[in-house]
C-alpha cells in the first residue's frame, strides 16, 4: 500500500455524465494490485468533498491502472471533470482482493452495474470461466463486456427494462444457469454489485452448494482498517470492509 500522485492518462466518458473510465499512471500500484482490491482517491485537494472515494481496480496495463465509475453524487461528478495530465492523490492497493480459484474449479462471474469493474480485472487472471453474467437497469448500464473477450466465454446479459438480453435481474440468470452446470467440479461464484443483488446471489449459491465470494460496499473513511467505520456484521463479529474485505465468503455475512 502506498500514497502517490498519479497522472491522469485518460478520463473517458462511456455514457454522457454517467459512466467513466479513468486511467492513471502509477507503476507501484499497478505492480502490487490484485483483483478485488481498490484504490482510495481524492477527487480534488479541496475541503469539499472532505473524504476520499473508494473504487475497485478495473484493470492493470503495464504501469497504468484503470477504474470504471458511475457518477452518483458530488464526488464522482467532480472526478468526471478531471482532465488528462492532472494529478490525483491515490492510496492503494487496498483490501484483501478475490481469492483466486484453483484450476479445477468452475468459475461464474456475476456483475451488477458498475460492479463489473472488479470482475474484469479478476477475469484477466483466470485460466477459464464457463459463464459471465452481467445485469443492469437498461442496456446503457451494461459495461465492460470487451474486457472478457480473452476468456472466450459466453456472456449473458439481463436488463430490468428488457432493452438488452433477458428482461429481469442478473440473479435470474444465475438461477437458470446453475442447474445446467452438471459437473462433479466444484463451482465458485464471484459477485460484485448492489447489496440486494449480492444477498440474492448468496442465497442461490447456498442452495446449490456453490462457494460464493461477494465484494461488499460500505461507506469507507480511512481505507486501511484504522477507523473501524466500515463495519459489516459477520458470523465472526463485526469486520472491516476496507481491510478484512471488501471480498467476503458469502456464508460469513449476516445478510
Amino acid at each position: 500500500m502506498l500514497q502517490v500522485k498519479a497522472r491522469i492518462i485518460e478520463n473517458k466518458e462511456l455514457l454522457p455524465e454517467t459512466y467513466y473510465r479513468l486511467s492513471l499512471k502509477t507503476p507501484p500500484i499497478a505492480r502490487l494490485a490484485k483483483p478485488g482490491q481498490f484504490v482510495h482517491l481524492r477527487v480534488n485537494e479541496k475541503i469539499f468533498p472532505l473524504l476520499r472515494r473508494p473504487f475497485s481496480i478495473h484493470s492493470v496495463h503495464k504501469e497504468n491502472i484503470q477504474i470504471l465509475y458511475k457518477v452518483t453524487g458530488a464526488g464522482t461528478g467532480i472526478l468526471s471533470r478531471r482532465k488528462k495530465d492532472e494529478l490525483l492523490d491515490v492510496i492503494g492497493p487496498l483490501g484483501n482482493g478475490y481469492r483466486l480459484p484453483d484450476k479445477r474449479t468452475k468459475v461464474i462471474l456475476v456483475a451488477g452495474g458498475a460492479g463489473v469493474a472488479s470482475l474484469c480485472f479478476l477475469s484477466q487472471r483466470l485460466a477459464s470461466c464457463p459463464a459471465v453474467l452481467i445485469g443492469g437497469r437498461s442496456k446503457r448500464d451494461i459495461l465492460g463486456r470487451d474486457k472478457f473477450k480473452r476468456l472466450k466465454t459466453k456472456i449473458k446479459i439481463s436488463t430490468e427494462d428488457g432493452s438488452l438480453g433477458k428482461k429481469g435481474l442478473v440473479t435470474d440468470l444465475l438461477q437458470e444457469l446453475l442447474p445446467t452446470l452438471h459437473s462433479p467440479l466444484p463451482t465458485v461464484i464471484y459477485a460484485c454489485g448492489p447489496m440486494k443483488m449480492l444477498k440474492e446471489t448468496a442465497k442461490i449459491a447456498e442452495r446449490h452448494r456453490a462457494l460464493c465470494y461477494v465484494s461488499l460496499e460500505e461507506f469507507i473513511v480511512c481505507g486501511v482498517g484504522a477507523c473501524q467505520g466500515c463495519a459489516v456484521r459477520t458470523k465472526n463479529g463485526y469486520k472491516r470492509v476496507c481491510k478484512d474485505g471488501p471480498v467476503f465468503d458469502s456464508k460469513e455475512i449476516i445478510w
Binding site: 475541503i47 469539499f48 468533498p49 472532505l50 473524504l51 460500505e218 461507506f219 473513511v221 484504522a226 477507523c227 473501524q228 467505520g229 466500515c230 463495519a231 459489516v232 456484521r233 463479529g237 463485526y238
Partner: peptide
C-alpha cells in the same frame, strides 16, 4: 485507539457519515 478492559464490538452500522466539512462517527469505542 482508546482501549477498554474487555473487547468492545462497537455500534451497529452505519458508523460514519460525511457532513459539510466534517465526519460524524459512532464507532462506539470498538
Amino acid at each position: 485507539k482508546t482501549i477498554t478492559l474487555k473487547p468492545k464490538a462497537g455500534n451497529p452500522p452505519p458508523r460514519v457519515v460525511e457532513t459539510a466539512s466534517g465526519i460524524l462517527n459512532s464507532i462506539g469505542l470498538a
